[in-house]
Write a protein that binds this DNA or RNA. Sequence first.
DNA 1: CTGAAAGCGCTTACAG
DNA 2: CTGAAAGCGCTTACAG
Lengths: 350, 350
Amino acid sequence: MSAGAGRATITDVALRAGVSRTTVSHAMNGKGTVSPATSERVRAVAAELGYEPNAVARGLRQSRLGVIALIIRPLDSLDTANPEGVDYFLRFAGSAALSAVDRGYGLLLASDPTRDDAPAPGPAADGFIVDSPVEDDPLIALLRRRGTPYVAVGVAPDSSDDTPAVTHDAEADTDRILAHLTAGGARRIALVTGTDRNDWNRVAHAAYVAWVQRHGHLVDVHALDESSGVAGGRALGLDLLSGKLDGQSGRGGRPDAVYCLTGRHAAGVADAAKELSLRIPDDVQVVAGSDAVMCRTSEPPITALDLNPEQNARTAVNALVAALSGQPPRWPLRGAENHLIVRESTSARR
Amino acid sequence: MSAGAGRATITDVALRAGVSRTTVSHAMNGKGTVSPATSERVRAVAAELGYEPNAVARGLRQSRLGVIALIIRPLDSLDTANPEGVDYFLRFAGSAALSAVDRGYGLLLASDPTRDDAPAPGPAADGFIVDSPVEDDPLIALLRRRGTPYVAVGVAPDSSDDTPAVTHDAEADTDRILAHLTAGGARRIALVTGTDRNDWNRVAHAAYVAWVQRHGHLVDVHALDESSGVAGGRALGLDLLSGKLDGQSGRGGRPDAVYCLTGRHAAGVADAAKELSLRIPDDVQVVAGSDAVMCRTSEPPITALDLNPEQNARTAVNALVAALSGQPPRWPLRGAENHLIVRESTSARR
DNA sequence: CTGAAAGCGCTTACAG
DNA sequence: CTGAAAGCGCTTACAG
């Protein structure tokens, strides 16, 4: 009989149906030419045995597993205890999973295969989506070297033209936010970036400096570890808003607006403001460069940029599937238009 | 030289290093006995060629892919347009992914492989987590038949004792919520369930009926398609709260509290109440059996049960990994203790 | 210490 | 219409 132990294999079916494995394969997949009678018998036996083709074996043979791997870079630098703060990640992953399933793929959430030097096999996947790659990302390098199809998400618009990526215009986003704060009366805006060496941090920083200098304001930038979260934002906020810290300009005083790239930092800064009895937004405006649940539940709710993870995930999956089918789109792809969700932590009317 | 086209294989390394593939395998994996000199040479060549073992081939050979598949049943009956409402799914998937990665696995989000009758290969995975299986779930049946390790999440406590599952006590949850509403003054509580034939809907329904009858209240149950979301909740709420609908008891009037199993239905019912100029919670209390972003952002915020998807996901992943290692825990496992997040939509003090 | 050989479960030219 | 054979890239007894 069949192997007894595990799942039925194609050999089990062939033996039981009295045909070759070739014929079973043909009958099951509708390939080649099999007489109707044989085909029906084979399928009946397969059903009886509960035969299901082994996806791994098929994957090895056809080099098509039906799997898209998703690597979320910021995850490597986030404490994972508080999912409230990893809003973006969850929304992106969820949407990507749904899109992938729609297109006949599964979505594999995996860790950075280049992280430890041990030559462990990378995740088994037909293609990769790398969200927010870091500068000179080793994984991207690996993928290019291997010739594995991939799509990067969140690369700045100044990256090379032919790179497979879904981009967004971090410069325009920064300008929009600074203009919004200024419209609300801000004259001294502090920027709190993360420390990851990704394009988001870099481009936002550069755009901020350019804008602030263009408008004759003070440059006041602080880099804060992404993983420090709300607590880190609060600690920095206490120093920043009590005037202890000077901007890079060397002049004292406190900012009347704080723009944090992450929602968790923004929530922490807002906490600090309240502890210092500063009114939001009257005394200090607070805005986040990426929306998170904490922004919505903070008191008052914090104005934030909606990065549209759902739409970007869909775009990335569809583009990757197209590339996998030999029909890559014209790179780079434009991501969703980010829009500012104006809440009570800023003064300007929407 | 190497294959030229794609990735370097073990054969490429063997050829270049002048040894057998066996020796390459041994050297790379630290198995067998290889002289230090040979080992070093092999590893050097491997590095030079950028060799990485093919995970699929290894998976086929060792029947260990390093992948855990996650099937979220409710996804099959949700419209996916509004991720605000699929909070639970995202939180569960995110946490499961992180736990899996911690344990050296990737997490594969896949669709129900038993959905279409075509004998497509199921997702390639070492084990499965099935969240909220439905009654007589065909996937569970398939997994049992195949002998594939799996863990079900969200099965009611009355399922057979040895079933691999992370359970939660939906009956106790229901009792707690009904007691909370009663403490807030409710005398006629309507229940809005989903229509999926899962244990959550079934057990909550049964527990509600038992509790209400025990306390001499009216039975007032409505089954509403999970996918109808907020709009469905609103439509039902308008009928329910305007007194158009009678409970199963046949008596008229309107409920003074509505317990919806899903957060989206609850948000819809709250909308309906406001449209009817009913005050929440004074005229009608609203509570959700599963927390969602919409519960937090609704006005007023809606009291809801926190189903602890993060912790349940961790528990499920750890149990599955243990089972995969041949050390299954004692089933069923007790899931997280759910607790009620009391917000302004109910009257009782927390 | 090293390697030839078998085999994991499939698919696919190719020959009959 | 059917099947024998090769091969996808690995690992693992086993023999030398």
